[in-house]
Structure formats: structure tokens, C-alpha cells
Design a protein around this nucleic acid. Structure first.
Lengths: 231, 231
DNA sequence: CAGCCCTTTACACAACCTTTACGTTGGCTT
DNA sequence: AAGCCAACGTAAAGGTTGTGTAAAGGGCTG
């Protein structure tokens, strides 16, 4: 059961969100005061926190700052329309995403799912994983931190290795650029950030040295994909 | 029970609309002042708001702007005849449709139903949906974002995928071009806009590569339809 | 300060969506 | 039944956006 906590003083809004999220099968709790919300959030009983910036008593950014002293619980910030500054500060303080009010419940649910999916990816990574696996001509040896193509070991940088490992461990699935950026580069994907593209380009070049057939596929607007051979 | 709120200072008109809508089984409330209407609308107790542009006290566009700070409740604007500017501004502010005064009650009801039907479609989409389903020879795998015909995966663009998924999820029902445009393209269908027709054409071409029998049916003036095969 | 690596910049290209243009269809009027 | 017209089908052109990649920039480490 996934539990979500909302900290927002707008009762009508929390009521509305409660209905939508419960329809989607989430356990939902709302509180309307900063300090109260902070206490609940620190308890680690919630998988995600929806946090309004404008709060009576204790400012949302303050809540976030204090929460981060204790917990890495994912936080989705709710900001007043176009309040760019709050957004930037919030993301620096460790918010996972932000959403401008007013938002459609639909978009809220989409953002929540995106965050939860990413958290799940991270948790997967932390669990013990197969120390070696093979995708087509690519062979991963995570003990040696090495990937080979047709038995030729690739000379990859740390970042390149992480990206390719991610793609290999999710071979057959699309991996979004957003996910790749957060998991391999450790930062959110910004609008004109091309560094991930460069890493992909370099990885492709290195693979192509040994195998022209093994390709990382691009799915425009969605992400990248390493195709499993046999399907 | 569907509740509709009308914000208009013309008492004779609200009386007239009240009679028609109540005949159609709607719960109807009318107020004649902007601020009063805004308060009621923000309560999220109504499924739709009819909003006059010309209001004493607070302008209709201002009401809409403030309402949108809090709520995505559907709004149908009522404008003076041919007041194109108000219309454009209103739609930018997030009105769902507009209707020029004087209007026939019959047309009003038609517009209301169109909006409510679309809102319902959107809400359906927000609810958890089957991650895979099959319609005749078409197989949808929403986890992989892939649709296959006779086990041949289609190479669809993001937009094409969305359109075809919508048609599949409503197989056997007519889906209007207006709905398809709003849900898949994210914009209202304009008078001479042919882009949706093009997407349909391209989807048909891609399906026909593998199965000549599987057809998206056209219902002239109504929309498109994917027929459920087995009957 | 040299070397490595990541990121940014810049430009070209490809994929995609939309518009244009013209042909066809189907319903409706006369 | 003929003719009209709006809706539709689709090829081709146009415009926009995302992606590929070379090259330059910048930071870190030894």
C-alpha cells in the first residue's frame, strides 16, 4: 500500500486530491499546518509528500529543509503559478519535482507515478543484482565493473558505464532520459541539457568499434532502448 | 447528480436556462454577482460553470482567472455576440468552450453535454486501466507503450500511439474528433484543422502493412470507431 | 599543469506534426 | 436524378522540435 501525505492549507484542494488519489488506490492523508506535516513526514510512514509552498505557520521551504535533515522521502512541491524562484530554491533543497497551481488531478497523478517509478528504480539498484548478465553481444561483469562487446572489453568512463549498465539491466524496456539523468548523472534533466546525449553518443561510438550491429535505439521524446535480441 | 452553476446578471436568462436544464435533469444554481459566483465555483461543488463575460462588480474574465488559481472545474463562457477578443482571452485563461449570446437553449445543452462527456473521458483515463488489452488483431501493451498487429509491433509516433490507444480503449464506441483532438493532441479542434485526419491516415497505413482487414471506421460528422470483431 | 572527464556550445540533420492542395465520398437540396 | 457542398482521404510541402556529434570550455585530480 502506497501512502501519500499532503501538506496544504487549502481544504477544498486537499479534499479534491484525496478523492482522486483514493480512486487510484493510494492511502491518503492531509494536514493543513507546516509543523504538523513535518512531524508526520519525518515518521517515514509515507512514500511521498505533497508540499505546498505557501503555508501558515511554517513556510513550505522551511519544512522541506528540516525534513531533509532526517529523511530522503520524496517530495513533490506545489507552488503558486509561475513562481520560478520558489521552484529553483525547492529543487536545490532536494524536492523531487514541482507542480504549479492550479494543476489538473490528471497531471498530479502522472507526476506522482513518475516519482514513485523512479524511486523504485533506485531501490532496485540498491538491491543485490546479478553480477553478470548478457544482452545480445554485450556482456556485463559488475564485479570488474566492465562491459565487453564480443569479448572485447570496453574502455568506459564511470558515467558511461552507469548509463550502459542501466540500459542493459532494463534491456527491452524504454528508459527515459529523465530517469537516466537522475540515476546516472545524479541531476534532473534540464531543458537544454545535452550532456546525456553526448554520453550516449560516446557509448555508441565505443560499441561500434567492435560491433556495428549492436545499437542503442532512440525513441524520440521517450528515451533510449537496448533491444533484446530474441523478440 | 450533475450540478451546474450559472453566473450571469440577466435574471430573465438565468430563469430560462434554469427551466431547460432542470428539464434535462441537471441540478441548477444561478447567482448574479461575480464574487459570489467565484466563491461557489471554488467550492468544487459544481461539475460545470456557465460564466457571463459582462458582469457587474467583477468581470467574468477576472472571475475565470481567479477560479483557475484553485480549480480546473470546466467553464463554458457566455459572450456578447461576436466578441472575438473576449473569446480568445477566455480560452487562453482556460475556459473549455464559449457560446455567443443570444443562444438557443438547445445549443447550450449540446455544448454542456459535450464538455461533460469529455471530462468523463479524462477521468476514466486517470483511473487505473488494464495494462494490456486486445481488440481483434490489435494487441496493446501499455507498459512497453507498444501496439502489435498479428504480433508485428507497430512503429508508431507518440501521437499515433495515443490516438490508437484511445480508440482501442473505447473499441465499439464512436470517439469524436473533438475528443480525440483534445485528449491526444492537447488542443481544441479548429474548423479547418486536418492534422488529426492525417494521423488517422498514417495509423491506417501502418496497420494495413500487416493486416488488411483491421480497419478504423469513419463515421462522417461523428468521429472514428474501432469495431469489436467477434459479433 | 597535464590529463581526463563531464558539460556546454554550435550546427546539421532527422523525425515529427501541421498545413496545403486536390481528389473523393456521402448526404442533402432542388 | 443531377448537382452541390461539407466532410473526409491522403500526398506533398512546410515548419518545428528533438537528437547526433564535433569541438571548445571548465573543473578536478594527481
Amino acid at each position: 500500500m502506497t501512502s501519500i501525505l499532503m501538506i496544504d492549507d487549502d481544504m477544498a484542494l486537499t479534499q479534491l486530491v484525496a478523492e482522486y488519489l483514493q480512486l487510484d488506490g493510494y492511502q491518503f492523508t492531509a494536514v493543513h499546518q507546516g509543523p504538523e506535516g513535518l512531524e508526520l513526514a519525518k515518521s517515514n510512514a509515507f512514500q511521498l509528500v505533497l508540499l505546498d509552498i505557501m503555508l501558515p505557520g511554517m513556510d513550505g521551504l522551511t519544512v522541506l529543509k528540516q525534513l531533509r535533515q532526517h529523511s530522503y522521502c520524496p517530495v513533490l512541491m506545489l507552488t503558486a503559478r509561475g513562481d520560478e524562484i520558489d521552484r529553483v530554491v525547492g529543487l536545490e533543497l532536494g524536492a523531487d519535482d514541482y507542480l504549479a497551481k492550479p494543476f489538473s488531478p490528471r497531471e498530479l497523478v502522472a507526476r506522482i507515478k513518475a516519482i514513485l517509478r523512479r524511486v523504485e528504480l533506485v531501490q532496485q539498484q540498491q538491491q543485490p543484482q546479478a553480477s553478470s548478465l548478457q544482452v545480445n553481444q554485450l556482456k556485463l561483469d559488475s564485479a570488474k565493473r566492465q562491459i565487453s562487446v564480443l569479448d572485447n572489453p570496453l574502455v568506459l568512463t564511470a558515467t558511461e558505464y552507469q548509463i550502459l549498465e542501466l540500459l542493459m539491466r532494463h534491456a527491452g524496456d524504454v528508459v527515459s532520459k529523465e530517469d537516466l539523468s537522475q540515476l546516472a548523472l545524479g541531476k534532473r534533466l534540464q531543458p537544454y541539457d545535452r550532456s546525456l546525449d553526448m554520453h550516449i553518443s560516446n557509448i555508441r561510438k565505443k560499441i561500434a568499434q567492435y560491433d556495428e550491429g549492436e545499437k542503442i535505439q532512440t525513441l524520440r521524446g521517450l528515451g533510449y532502448l537496448l533491444l533484446q535480441g530474441d523478440n
